[in-house]
């Protein structure tokens, strides 16, 4: 049976990895810190997939970002999806050549659907993740692009339908309100939309412990649960969580986490 997935999202800003809370970024450490102090290679053995997002505010350097991706490939033997600031076929090609297995698109989904179409044709739907950031305002689910800084006209449900029409491979749905809080996923919104879209759905924003991950994995219509929280799963938090999740009978892949 096709498995559900646990995904870790690394938030990158100018060669540093960040802890994000409601999209406000706090510097944590660079790649050397991630490898030596955070023991990322060990933690990565608890993951099914890695997403790395360049959230650098202002001018991003995709070359610098790609260099970091090419080094991260040595730390994780799982598919890596990378994105943040992709504005051309060349940007996408650079990330694939640097070791990304998938690319993550956000702002161009709305601003340059022709480019999205080209990317889907060139690399295949399965290589394209559509990232959607939203927050609640007076009961309305508002969608934001450009790292959460620009609100768009369309509301969430209509926007997700629009994204489906672009033939992307899956949707990464991230709650700005829950981001980095550790209070659990935004299950109200997730439950409202999960059966209305046909694409595989990755939920993000709010996971703070293994119970949150299990709650997400239990939902039909949710393919993957993501966390970007560097602090809540520190040390052997994720290896232990993965074992508990497997023992609780959730449908995730099994391999020797320690060894």
């Amino acid at each position: 049976m096709l498995r559900k997935r646990i995904i870790f999202t690394l938030i990158y800003d100018h060669e540093y990895f960040m802890q994000s809370r409601n999209f406000r970024l706090q510097k944590v450490g660079n790649l050397t810190w991630l490898e030596r102090n955070y023991k990322f290679q060990e933690i990565a053995f608890s993951l099914d997939e890695l997403i790395v997002l360049d959230a650098t505010k202002g001018k991003k350097s995709i070359e610098m970002f790609a260099t970091t991706i090419s080094k991260l490939v040595n730390d994780a033997f799982i598919p890596i999806a990378a994105g943040g600031g992709i504005r051309s076929v060349e940007d996408a090609e650079l990330l694939f050549r640097s070791g990304a297995d998938k690319i993550v698109l956000n702002s161009i989904l709305l601003e340059d659907p022709v480019l999205v179409e080209v990317l889907v044709k060139t690399y295949g739907s399965q290589s394209i993740v559509a990232s959607v950031d939203y927050k609640l305002n007076n009961g309305t689910e508002e969608v934001y692009i450009h790292d959460g800084s620009v609100k768009i006209e369309m509301e969430l449900e209509g926007y997700l339908k629009y994204i489906e029409s672009l033939n992307v491979g899956e949707i990464y749905l991230n709650s700005i309100d829950k981001d980095g809080t550790g209070f659990g996923y935004d299950f109200i919104t997730i439950n409202n939309i999960k059966d209305k879209i046909n694409l595989p759905l990755i939920i993000a924003g709010g996971a703070g412990n293994e119970k949150h991950l299990i709650d997400g994995l239990k939902l039909s219509g949710v393919s993957a649960v993501a966390t970007a929280n560097l602090f809540n799963f520190i040390g052997d938090g994720l290896p232990i969580a993965r074992k508990h999740i497997i023992n609780s009978g959730e449908n995730i892949a099994n391999w020797d986490v320690n060894n």
């Binding site: 049976m1 096709l2 498995r3 099914d48 295949g124 595989p200 995730i252």
Partner: peptide, 10 residues
């Protein structure tokens, strides 16, 4: 079934 077949499988 969705094609391509993507993900971990036994």
């Amino acid at each position: 079934f969705k094609i391509p077949h993507v993900g971990f499988n036994q």
